[in-house]
Design a protein around this nucleic acid. Structure first.
Lengths: 116, 116
DNA sequence: CTAAAACTTGACACAGATGTGAGGTTCAAG
DNA sequence: CTTGAACCTCACATCTGTGTCAAGTTTTAG
């Protein structure tokens, strides 16, 4: 699987995939000509990376957190704390978003009512 | 209420408050010496601005959406569509975050179990 | 073998909210 | 009146993921 295939399979641009590699989030084998080669599992990995990025984790954080998916032995107390902290951050963010959603929904609803 | 007071009351930096004003999100009276003066209601307004920013709305969008809180007559079909679009975006974001949260929570939980 | 498509590295650009510093003015307290 | 804190404007810096362009190499199809 070459970079273009992985890009097509995941929705990430080739540029982003190279960036993930540069940041240590994604590994690739190199063919004889130096071109990147990926395995099928990397599709899921990229999906996970994008999920976490979308949740506001930074590449540095993801780099710290991702290995424990692949290699269970890497999990240390430090990593557990890190995961916990990120989880808490995401939950706070969800709560904030719910509040914002209610604000927006209230506005939309009020508008609809006025239209009748 | 001067800018420092509003900053303290809202958690936003004075820099941010000036930026909000520059972007047309926040108004201020100016004293004789040119210094900004805010009313109590601005505390809530800044809170709302920060909520919306936190939800990923851009200042330009907030500028379009905010007036309908203050002035109900400004609500137009265009604005309704805008609000609806943002609402949808936020709901999608919430769904994505839930997925991510579950991923993180799963990792944390697995770690906890292993520790016992 | 050849041309086109896909890939490589490297560098620069952007967006958006905020930080930061300079240099100057105003306010509040002694 | 003086001094220090708070404020003013203006401008440049920062961070992070991604877009994009350039110049060159590899792969693939005909």
């Amino acid at each position: 699987m070459r970079i273009g295939d992985l890009a097509a399979a995941t929705g990430a641009s080739a540029r982003s995939l190279r960036y993930y590699e540069e940041q240590g989030l994604l590994a690739s084998d190199r063919g004889p000509g130096g071109q990147r080669s990926y395995c099928a599992a990397d599709v899921d990995r990229v999906g996970l990376i994008r999920s976490l990025l979308g949740a506001g984790l930074t590449t540095a954080t993801i780099r710290d957190v991702l290995p424990c998916v692949a290699d269970e032995s890497i999990r240390t107390p430090w990593l557990a704390a890190r995961l916990g902290a990120e989880l808490e951050r995401v939950e706070t963010q969800i709560a904030d978003l719910h509040r914002t959603r209610d604000i927006l929904a209230g506005l939309v609803k009020r508008y609809d009512v006025d239209q009748r």
